[in-house]
Design a protein around this nucleic acid. Sequence first.
DNA 1: CTCCAGGGGGCCA
DNA 2: TGGCCCCATGGA
Length: 196
Amino acid sequence: MSMDAAWVYKELFAEYGHQHWWPKHKGKKRRGFDPRFEIIVGAVLTQNTSWKNVEKAIECLFEKNLLDAISIAEAPIKRLETCIRSSGYYKQKAKKLKIVANFFLEHKKKPSREELLSLWGIGRETADSILLYAFNHPIFVVDAYTRRLLAAHGQKKLAEADYDKIRMFFETHLPSDYKLFNEYHALIVAWGKIKK
DNA sequence: CTCCAGGGGGCCA
DNA sequence: TGGCCCCATGGA
Protein backbone atom coordinates (compact mmCIF):
# COMPACT_ATOMS: atom_id res chain seq x y z
CA MET A 1 0.00 0.00 0.00
CA SER A 2 1.17 3.39 -1.02
CA MET A 3 1.71 6.51 1.03
CA ASP A 4 -0.92 9.25 0.63
CA ALA A 5 1.26 12.13 -0.54
CA ALA A 6 -1.52 14.71 -0.26
CA TRP A 7 -2.41 13.65 3.27
CA VAL A 8 1.21 13.80 4.37
CA TYR A 9 1.43 17.33 2.95
CA LYS A 10 -1.55 18.45 5.00
CA GLU A 11 -0.06 16.93 8.12
CA LEU A 12 3.27 18.66 7.53
CA PHE A 13 1.64 22.01 6.83
CA ALA A 14 -0.51 21.72 9.95
CA GLU A 15 2.61 20.94 11.97
CA TYR A 16 5.12 23.42 10.54
CA GLY A 17 3.11 26.04 8.61
CA HIS A 18 4.23 28.17 5.71
CA GLN A 19 7.99 28.01 5.19
CA HIS A 20 8.34 31.09 2.95
CA TRP A 21 11.17 29.69 0.85
CA TRP A 22 11.89 31.17 -2.55
CA PRO A 23 11.02 33.41 -4.20
CA LYS A 24 12.08 36.25 -1.97
CA HIS A 25 14.64 38.68 -3.29
CA LYS A 26 16.89 41.30 -1.84
CA GLY A 27 17.98 42.76 -5.18
CA LYS A 28 16.78 46.06 -6.56
CA LYS A 29 17.28 47.85 -9.85
CA ARG A 30 20.87 47.11 -10.65
CA ARG A 31 22.77 46.37 -13.78
CA GLY A 32 21.35 43.25 -15.39
CA PHE A 33 19.18 42.48 -12.39
CA ASP A 34 16.91 39.45 -12.68
CA PRO A 35 15.16 38.21 -9.52
CA ARG A 36 15.36 34.64 -10.80
CA PHE A 37 19.14 34.70 -10.93
CA GLU A 38 19.40 35.30 -7.21
CA ILE A 39 17.47 32.06 -6.67
CA ILE A 40 19.75 30.25 -9.10
CA VAL A 41 22.80 31.45 -7.18
CA GLY A 42 21.24 30.25 -3.94
CA ALA A 43 20.44 26.85 -5.46
CA VAL A 44 24.10 26.35 -6.37
CA LEU A 45 25.58 27.70 -3.16
CA THR A 46 23.34 25.60 -0.93
CA GLN A 47 24.68 22.31 -2.31
CA ASN A 48 25.56 20.21 0.75
CA THR A 49 25.63 23.37 2.85
CA SER A 50 23.42 24.90 5.52
CA TRP A 51 21.30 27.81 4.30
CA LYS A 52 22.64 30.06 7.03
CA ASN A 53 26.13 29.95 5.53
CA VAL A 54 24.67 30.52 2.07
CA GLU A 55 22.93 33.69 3.27
CA LYS A 56 26.27 35.13 4.32
CA ALA A 57 27.67 34.44 0.87
CA ILE A 58 24.66 35.97 -0.88
CA GLU A 59 24.89 39.00 1.37
CA CYS A 60 28.51 39.48 0.33
CA LEU A 61 27.61 39.13 -3.35
CA PHE A 62 24.84 41.69 -2.84
CA GLU A 63 27.11 44.18 -1.10
CA LYS A 64 29.78 43.86 -3.77
CA ASN A 65 27.17 44.21 -6.50
CA LEU A 66 27.84 40.66 -7.74
CA LEU A 67 24.30 39.31 -7.53
CA ASP A 68 23.54 39.28 -11.24
CA ALA A 69 24.66 37.18 -14.20
CA ILE A 70 26.66 39.91 -15.93
CA SER A 71 28.67 40.82 -12.85
CA ILE A 72 29.43 37.21 -11.97
CA ALA A 73 30.45 36.46 -15.55
CA GLU A 74 32.81 39.44 -15.56
CA ALA A 75 34.17 39.21 -12.01
CA PRO A 76 37.62 37.75 -11.32
CA ILE A 77 37.25 34.19 -10.03
CA LYS A 78 39.24 35.03 -6.90
CA ARG A 79 36.82 37.81 -6.06
CA LEU A 80 33.93 35.33 -6.22
CA GLU A 81 35.81 32.75 -4.17
CA THR A 82 36.50 35.22 -1.36
CA CYS A 83 32.90 36.35 -1.29
CA ILE A 84 31.28 32.92 -1.16
CA ARG A 85 33.83 31.28 1.12
CA SER A 86 31.30 30.78 3.93
CA SER A 87 29.19 28.46 1.77
CA GLY A 88 31.97 25.87 1.54
CA TYR A 89 33.44 24.23 -1.56
CA TYR A 90 34.13 27.80 -2.58
CA LYS A 91 36.52 27.04 -5.45
CA GLN A 92 34.09 24.64 -7.08
CA LYS A 93 31.10 26.87 -6.45
CA ALA A 94 32.81 29.97 -7.87
CA LYS A 95 33.40 27.98 -11.03
CA LYS A 96 29.80 26.77 -11.03
CA LEU A 97 28.49 30.34 -10.66
CA LYS A 98 30.58 31.39 -13.66
CA ILE A 99 29.11 28.56 -15.72
CA VAL A 100 25.47 29.23 -14.82
CA ALA A 101 25.95 32.98 -15.22
CA ASN A 102 27.25 32.55 -18.76
CA PHE A 103 24.49 30.07 -19.52
CA PHE A 104 21.72 32.46 -18.46
CA LEU A 105 23.32 35.32 -20.34
CA GLU A 106 23.11 33.26 -23.52
CA HIS A 107 19.70 31.66 -22.83
CA LYS A 108 17.39 34.37 -21.60
CA LYS A 109 14.28 32.18 -21.57
CA LYS A 110 13.24 29.32 -19.32
CA PRO A 111 15.76 26.48 -19.61
CA SER A 112 14.85 22.82 -20.09
CA ARG A 113 15.85 20.26 -17.49
CA GLU A 114 18.24 18.69 -19.98
CA GLU A 115 19.98 22.01 -20.61
CA LEU A 116 20.51 22.54 -16.91
CA LEU A 117 21.75 19.00 -16.38
CA SER A 118 24.28 19.44 -19.19
CA LEU A 119 26.01 22.15 -17.17
CA TRP A 120 28.98 21.20 -15.00
CA GLY A 121 27.95 21.60 -11.37
CA ILE A 122 24.21 21.24 -11.92
CA GLY A 123 22.81 17.88 -10.88
CA ARG A 124 19.21 16.73 -10.66
CA GLU A 125 18.33 18.33 -7.34
CA THR A 126 19.84 21.69 -8.27
CA ALA A 127 18.29 21.63 -11.75
CA ASP A 128 14.86 20.86 -10.31
CA SER A 129 15.27 23.49 -7.61
CA ILE A 130 16.05 26.09 -10.27
CA LEU A 131 13.07 25.06 -12.40
CA LEU A 132 10.68 25.03 -9.42
CA TYR A 133 11.83 28.01 -7.39
CA ALA A 134 13.15 30.35 -10.07
CA PHE A 135 10.80 29.49 -12.95
CA ASN A 136 7.68 28.21 -11.15
CA HIS A 137 7.86 25.00 -13.15
CA PRO A 138 5.86 22.24 -11.41
CA ILE A 139 8.64 19.72 -10.81
CA PHE A 140 9.09 17.95 -7.48
CA VAL A 141 12.48 18.39 -5.81
CA VAL A 142 13.87 15.28 -4.13
CA ASP A 143 16.58 15.31 -1.48
CA ALA A 144 17.91 13.19 1.37
CA TYR A 145 15.09 14.37 3.65
CA THR A 146 12.52 13.23 1.09
CA ARG A 147 13.98 9.74 1.28
CA ARG A 148 13.85 9.81 5.08
CA LEU A 149 10.23 10.97 4.95
CA LEU A 150 9.32 8.07 2.68
CA ALA A 151 11.13 5.61 4.93
CA ALA A 152 9.36 7.07 7.96
CA HIS A 153 6.04 6.37 6.25
CA GLY A 154 6.79 2.74 5.46
CA GLN A 155 8.01 3.34 1.92
CA LYS A 156 11.43 1.85 2.51
CA LYS A 157 11.76 0.42 -0.99
CA LEU A 158 10.88 3.70 -2.68
CA ALA A 159 13.13 5.62 -0.29
CA GLU A 160 16.13 3.78 -1.72
CA ALA A 161 14.99 4.10 -5.32
CA ASP A 162 16.47 6.28 -8.05
CA TYR A 163 16.00 10.06 -7.81
CA ASP A 164 13.61 10.34 -10.76
CA LYS A 165 11.52 7.42 -9.57
CA ILE A 166 10.90 9.23 -6.27
CA ARG A 167 10.22 12.48 -8.12
CA MET A 168 7.67 10.76 -10.35
CA PHE A 169 5.94 9.23 -7.35
CA PHE A 170 5.11 12.65 -5.93
CA GLU A 171 4.30 14.15 -9.32
CA THR A 172 1.83 11.39 -10.17
CA HIS A 173 0.14 11.41 -6.75
CA LEU A 174 -0.29 15.18 -6.47
CA PRO A 175 -1.90 17.89 -8.58
CA SER A 176 0.71 19.50 -10.83
CA ASP A 177 0.93 22.77 -8.90
CA TYR A 178 4.22 24.63 -8.52
CA LYS A 179 3.02 26.35 -5.36
CA LEU A 180 2.23 22.98 -3.80
CA PHE A 181 5.60 21.51 -4.83
CA ASN A 182 7.38 24.62 -3.57
CA GLU A 183 5.82 24.39 -0.13
CA TYR A 184 5.99 20.59 0.05
CA HIS A 185 9.74 20.40 -0.45
CA ALA A 186 10.31 23.20 2.07
CA LEU A 187 8.09 21.41 4.59
CA ILE A 188 10.00 18.16 4.13
CA VAL A 189 13.24 19.98 4.89
CA ALA A 190 11.66 21.59 7.96
CA TRP A 191 10.47 18.17 9.11
CA GLY A 192 13.87 16.60 8.49
CA LYS A 193 15.78 19.21 10.40
CA ILE A 194 13.61 18.95 13.49
CA LYS A 195 12.96 15.23 13.31
CA LYS A 196 16.44 13.70 12.82
C1' DC B 1 36.55 15.71 19.15
C1' DT B 2 32.81 14.18 15.51
C1' DC B 3 28.94 14.99 12.47
C1' DC B 4 26.40 17.23 8.90
C1' DA B 5 24.15 20.95 6.11
C1' DG B 6 18.39 22.86 1.08
C1' DG B 7 25.02 17.88 -3.73
C1' DG B 8 27.78 16.94 -7.62
C1' DG B 9 31.79 15.26 -10.32
C1' DG B 10 35.18 11.77 -11.31
C1' DC B 11 36.69 7.21 -11.30
C1' DC B 12 36.15 2.36 -11.44
C1' DA B 13 34.23 -2.27 -11.68
C1' DT C 1 24.06 1.47 -12.47
C1' DG C 2 26.39 1.46 -7.94
C1' DG C 3 29.99 2.36 -4.60
C1' DC C 4 33.62 5.49 -3.06
C1' DC C 5 36.28 9.51 -2.56
C1' DC C 6 36.90 14.38 -2.91
C1' DC C 7 35.55 19.05 -2.37
C1' DA C 8 35.52 22.90 2.51
C1' DT C 9 33.36 26.01 5.76
C1' DG C 10 30.83 26.78 10.04
C1' DG C 11 27.76 25.46 13.62
C1' DA C 12 26.04 21.97 17.03
